[in-house]
Design a protein around this nucleic acid. Structure first.
Lengths: 197, 197
DNA sequence: TTGCTTACTTACTAGTAAGTAAGTAGCTTT
DNA sequence: AAAGCTACTTACTTACTAGTAAGTAAGCAA
């Protein structure tokens, strides 16, 4: 869940992946090409094909890495040891950072729009990523309600889906309008969850 | 705010617009071409250029028509005469229909992901559309709270932005996962607004 | 009936897309 | 020193992109 790594000081394979992730989040999958990457890395497009034979391989690698990041972050002692409200807060901070520092949306928001044009393998990876993310957040929300520190109606999974959906959309708002409106939406979600109904 | 018209029984200009809207909502702006449209309408790509010289013109026309639809719908007597909760309900129904009948997202969700790759004119139109939509919903929410029939915390504009964001995201969820999860998110939003806190 | 307009088609340009095959420089291994 | 591997480059193909210019058939208008 950390922010994308800088595109330097890594081996070529990783630098390609970093840059591709960057382009994916800022332009979408269909609007970046091997040429974009090659130019930025001062290489020829064919060199990208050497590391990632097809664009599909590159796309799958990007999503899969994000899934690994999620799992790693989620299982970090400094995260698992937090209380549910703190876990939620830490999670929201990731989105807040995205909106401020880069003009990037989250993976779900970036890929859902062009979902029907994506290779099957990418569609599957994205589904997995979203399911795991929803399940984790649902477990946080369930624990928070049990401890009477998070407050909401309905099933934890429904609420988790709603929150993720809203956060994804909030980042899109930040891009189309100003960042401030995005922050207001995030604050709205936070307040509603933390204050007793 | 009505669903897109069928692609037949109209003049060519409108049929192009209808089909382009369809393709935009289902595949994104960068993933459809004049060829797609031409093939479907059994014409040559150059014929599309005759009606819409550039893809930008086509894109702007799509968004602008949607803005006109919004204004028309919003000012319809049968809509203005409704109570705020009924207005909200009628509005949500539009999104519900989108999720069920087509696998289409809303304009905002479709275009936000590739926003940075869009022509300036399209970016501007999309901003206008979203501002007007947010302002209308905010006025409904404000009136509903004044009449004690809609319940929420925070500023009406913030809440409106949050609701729109969530609805946009919900349609994207419907596409990536099943339609049912989308319906659950919409229900969650409805319940929270209609039940006193 | 001549001329203009509408709504196209045909034929083209220039640019870009993903992807491939063959070659090569530099390093390592034996 | 020969062989092989890694990480590329060069040169190419095929397909598609937006867009344009010129031509044309049908209808209407004077």
């Amino acid at each position: 869940m950390q922010a994308p790594a800088p595109a330097t000081a890594f081996d070529t394979r990783t630098r390609i992946l970093n840059l591709a992730e960057d382009l994916l989040l800022s332009r979408g999958f269909n609007a970046f090409s091997y040429q974009h990457i090659a130019k930025e890395l001062a290489m020829k497009p064919a060199a990208i094909h050497y590391h990632y034979p097809g664009k599909e391989d590159l796309g799958v690698a990007i999503i899969r890495r994000q899934l690994m990041r999620l799992r790693k972050w989620r299982d970090l002692p400094r995260v698992t040891e937090l209380t549910p409200p703190e876990q939620f807060e830490a999670f929201v901070d990731v989105y807040r950072g995205r909106a401020v520092t880069q003009r990037q949306v989250c993976f779900f928001g970036a890929l859902a729009a062009e979902f029907q044009t994506l290779p099957e393998a990418m569609q599957q990876e994205l589904r997995t990523l979203n399911v795991e993310l929803t399940e984790w957040l649902a477990s946080v929300l369930a624990a928070g309600r049990a401890a009477n520190t998070l407050h909401y109606k309905g099933h934890p999974v429904s609420k988790a889906a709603q929150v993720l959906t809203t956060l994804a959309g909030a980042l899109q708002v930040a891009r189309v309008h100003d960042e401030q409106q995005c922050q207001r939406i995030i604050e709205q979600v936070r307040t509603e969850l933390r204050e007793p109904v």
